[in-house]
Design a protein around this nucleic acid. Structure first.
Length: 511
RNA sequence: GCGGGAGUAGCUCAGCCGGUAGAGCAUCAGCCUUCCAAGCUGAGGGUCGCGGGUUCGAAUCCCGUCUCCCGCUCCA
């Protein structure tokens, strides 16, 4: 775990995987661009996800919903409420809190204190505990707690942040950490990006860029159900961009403001969600493993605090250079989303189950993977510096990106051993042919060893060299990126050899 | 937002106490090379983050500002 992010970011930039966004203009925080190699890596990951989910399951269909959705969608989903937190910083402890939880917790402490004191008092006076409620309600701390709650509720309802600032000040609410009562003004943080629908400024309506792709699936659920002739259990899969105004976007492309999700919502009869949850947990872990992420780099992390709509939730975590972090979430979401949309839209979002002879709102198992996080996972997992033999018989460091062959941005490189006309001609001819089938590169500059190393760093799994012997018997060498071993093959068999190495169907069978 | 660090060529960096920019790698052109990078020749590339000040003169000193990185806070 010695690889630091700085170095990886630098490597990714230099090789053309990932660039800082808008670098020409000093950059823009938390935004990154995918360069020539990065875009290949990313779309290969996405493609293999799509094949594993949609192509391989007759009961999973694809969808590409719009980024812009009706504003009511985000009220129904709970995002408008959840993503607009008023926050405040304590000037002494430098800690940041949500104002509502800060005040609520303080009120709770006051109440507890009131209860304790009353209990003590009653015991001393030998009075029966039945008097407790009455006594507590008379207690000044209890009364203060109630008044705090009332003022909090009123200010929250009106989104009156200055009133909350005043409340903190007047009531001398202390910081749980430092006890300090010095606060910055209350500010609202909006985690959703807003924009305007409608070209005429005055008539434009404020809408949001989606903070997650899932809602597109729920909103289109009835249409998909009607047009795709599906029966539960079935799934809807989608890959697309989502946007969040993260307070701090950090750790390279791990947390970005514009990111891409690969989500699948699986609709099941209520009562069967448990087994499907287990099914998808296992299925998704396998997919990651089969793309080359070693088992010890992956783990499940169950959520301890479940969201109100969730039955169960777990994350698949990957060992990034900065620790184990989520790359995919598998959630049992009950019928919460569909029910909310039914409620907000006034339409029925039910499924008629012939086997049960009744209609119901299906339960949902969600698998939600972060595409950019997977790119980062494969880059950091594959990056390695190791000793390799040199021409002089010594050892030297080589940088190699050990990507799974199916993810390689350049699948095969073709080199003439030396830059002489007959070598070059043969190599060019092979390149011209192979490119119809594979992402192929041709390179004749520099010494052969140097070219091997250059493509090692790009993650190219195979390098083919045309040498003196090729001119005599039409055989070439194929070098393996990871083992450095070479085999010699008739040129006519190269395509078949590579086709087998890059056989997606074969890979899908292993899932 | 707070605290810390940093901004000089695509990358990694040098440039001491101020005298109008350098190295290695990379890139391009050519030479040389018969299997694991850093041989040869030549070329391109930098308003030294930006603005202001001090000075005869600033990458170098002072002030301001922006951006990036790390930590904290946040993360349905």
């Amino acid at each position: 775990m010695s690889l630091d992010l700085q170095k990886l970011a630098s490597f990714a930039k230099e090789q053309g995987f990932i660039y800082p966004g808008s670098e020409l203009y000093e950059g823009i925080g938390g935004i990154y661009d995918y360069g020539p190699l990065g875009v290949e890596l990313k779309r290969r990951i996405a493609d293999l996800w799509w094949r594993a989910m949609v192509q391989l399951h007759e009961n999973i269909v694809g969808l590409d919903a719009a980024i812009l959705m009706h504003p009511r969608v985000w009220e129904a989903s709970g995002h408008v409420e959840a993503f607009h937190d008023p926050l405040v910083d304590n000037k002494v402890s430098k800690k940041r809190y949500r104002v509502d939880t800060l005040i609520e917790e303080y009120a709770q402490r006051l109440e507890e204190r009131a209860h304790k004191e009353v209990e003590k008092k009653l015991r001393k006076a030998g009075l029966p505990p039945e008097k407790a409620k009455e006594e507590v309600e008379k207690h000044k701390d209890y009364q203060r707690a109630q008044s705090l709650r009332a003022r909090l509720a009123e200010a929250m309802a009106k989104k009156d942040w200055p009133a909350l600032t005043a409340l903190l000040e007047e009531e001398k609410i202390p910081c749980p950490e430092s006890g300090s009562t010095e606060w910055t003004p209350v500010r609202q943080f909006n985690l959703m990006f807003s924009t305007h629908l409608g070209a005429v400024a005055e008539e434009a309506q404020e809408i949001y860029l989606r903070p997650e792709t899932a809602q597109g699936i729920f909103v289109d659920f009835p249409l998909v159900l009607k047009t795709a002739r599906l029966k539960v259990p079935f799934g809807i899969a989608q890959i697309g961009k989502a946007f969040r105004n993260e307070i701090v976007a950090r750790q390279f492309i791990f947390r970005m403001r514009e990111f891409e999700q690969m989500e699948m919502q699986f609709f099941v009869p209520p009562g069967t969600e448990g087994q499907w949850y287990e099914y998808w947990k296992e299925k998704r872990l396998r997919w990651h493993q089969h793309l080359g992420l070693r088992p010890e780099y992956l783990r499940f992390k169950d959520h301890e605090h479940l969201a109100h709509y969730a039955r169960a939730a777990t994350d698949i975590e990957f060992a990034f250079p900065f620790g184990f972090r989520e790359i995919e979430g598998i959630h049992s979401r009950t019928d919460y989303d569909l029910s909310r949309h039914a409620q907000f839209s006034g339409k029925k979002l039910e499924y008629y189950d012939e086997s049960q002879g009744r209609s119901y709102v299906p339960y949902v198992i969600e698998t939600s993977a972060g595409l950019d996080r997977l790119v980062l996972a494969h880059l950091s997992h594959g990056y390695s510096e190791e000793l390799a033999p040199t021409a002089e018989g010594g050892q030297e460091l080589r940088t190699v990106l050990k990507l799974h062959p199916l993810l390689a941005p350049i699948q095969v490189a073709v080199f003439p051993l030396i830059r002489k006309e007959d070598f070059v001609q043969k190599a060019r001819a092979l390149y011209e042919e192979l490119r119809f089938y594979f992402l192929t590169a041709y390179e004749e500059k520099d010494s052969i060893g140097r070219r091997y190393r250059r493509y090692d760093a790009k993650g190219t799994p195979f390098a083919i060299t045309i040498d003196g012997q090729t001119l005599e018997d039409e055989t070439v060498t194929i070098r393996d990126r990871d083992t450095l071993q070479q085999i010699r093959l008739p040129m006519a068999q190269v395509r078949a050899y590579l086709a087998e190495k890059f056989d997606v169907a074969q890979w899908l069978r292993t899932l």
